[in-house]
Design a protein around this nucleic acid. Structure first.
Lengths: 225, 225
DNA sequence: TAACCTTCTTTATAATTTCTTTATATTTTC
DNA sequence: GAAAATATAAAGAAATTATAAAGAAGGTTA
């Protein structure tokens, strides 16, 4: 449970299959999109931890997809490409690519770069373990403990708690949270959020009726302590 | 204007000179270290925005220097190496390298990767905190503290306080405040304002009967100190 | 394939918080 | 001191949030 999710956007079925095998055997959950358009929709509906993007897509140039993604998606995007031209690399990196690998890539290098990117996503403070009193969140192993007992969280619950933890002390608006966890297009579904905050509180709070960690800021959003 | 500072740790003088020329002509301030030990000291004394580290250093393996740096340095470290072995790359990335480039590197690609890394460093939002004696307003986190204690404000109260704070020392008319907070069409509802000024004073003033922050300007409006 | 389980989505309703309004007290201004 | 303006308290209305639970979707197992 709580596998990190990776979205692969590539038009070649063999590459997708290869990546699926590699990634799943390394304990990632893999989503696949065949076209840039499909990829954009999937990313928006379900923001992954990392995106592997083929720059040579048939429908729109991968560069355009990258630009589109970067208008709202702020986690890592690794570019895969048969192109090895300096111009292409510079362009991709300047559009916001996190990394650029040329095909054929080396499996272990790809995995190491993925690990590095995911680490970066989660360590805005270069920390991988967050401790809030009796609560302990380990972003590397994706394990949450309360008083040394491992909590069973669904992946949405985990993502939500992670977002809260990385923004400790800050009021997060409903819209922001919905966008980050469910994707653009879900910004009005505040009831989702209420339900999930409810289940999270039941799991992490000593007294869910008088929460100490997830504080309601009525009319605005929530704040995590 | 402040140039971003880059520390180059490399034992080859030619490479250092080359990097110096490239980087300075691209408006970076360059620091140079010849050995790993020297690099560690320089980085500690004057933490740069980014470190370029040669992995094949004579005194200690670059991997060890990297590991050492990562115990406290959390900005970007780009590895430069003549080595192109997968094992080496994986090891460096897993020890916390931000990126890995093989020598000879392509100038523009290096610059693009540097830009990408520095961009990432600077994404943590610079804080915008207003302080009025014992009162502290953080507009980014949307949090108001009085003597380090977080105040619980409704969103209207927060908006009103924010308006006051941004117009410190200025007399704001009832009409202006009502228009800003409640919108046009509410300019005559001065009673709203009285009620909310009342609740705000109860929360932020030491003695609400003798307010020091929100001053009544009878017949005109209010002024915030 | 069916039965089962988990998780997510949706609906209904209860509880709480915030806002608006009214009444009355207090202060300021002239 | 009287009129005007401001402050406070509190009740009712409205909006927002919380909770429970049913239905739907997806995956797993026998």
């Amino acid at each position: 449970m709580n596998k990190a999710e990776i979205l692969v956007i590539d038009d070649e079925p063999q590459i997708r299959k290869l990546l699926e095998i590699i990634l799943e055997s390394n304990d990632y959950k893999v989503w696949q999109a065949e076209t840039g358009k499909e990829g954009l929709i999937m990313a928006a509906n379900h923001p992954p931890e990392l995106i592997l993007l083929d720059i040579g897509l048939p429908d729109r140039s991968g560069h355009e997809i990258l630009k589109d993604l970067r208008t709202w998606y702020n986690k890592s995007i690794i570019i895969l490409s048969v192109q090895n031209s300096e111009e292409d690399i510079v362009r991709a990196l300047d559009t916001g690519a996190t990394d650029y690998l040329t095909k054929p890539f080396r499996t272990n290098e790809l995995l190491a770069r993925i690990r590095s990117c995911i680490r970066k996503n989660n360590t805005d403070d270069s920390k991988s373990i967050f401790i809030f009193d009796e609560l302990q969140i380990d972003f590397l192993s994706r394990i949450v403990k309360k008083n040394e007992t491992i909590l069973k969280l669904t992946s949405t619950e985990y993502n939500l708690l992670g977002l809260f933890a990385r923004n400790e002390g800050r009021v997060l608006t409903h819209q922001f949270i919905l966008k980050e966890i469910w994707g653009v297009g879900y910004q009005t579904e505040t009831q989702y959020l209420r339900v999930f905050v409810g289940t999270l509180r039941k799991k992490i709070e000593d007294n869910p009726n008088d929460p100490k960690h997830i504080i309601t800021e009525s009319g605005v959003g929530y704040r995590f302590n």
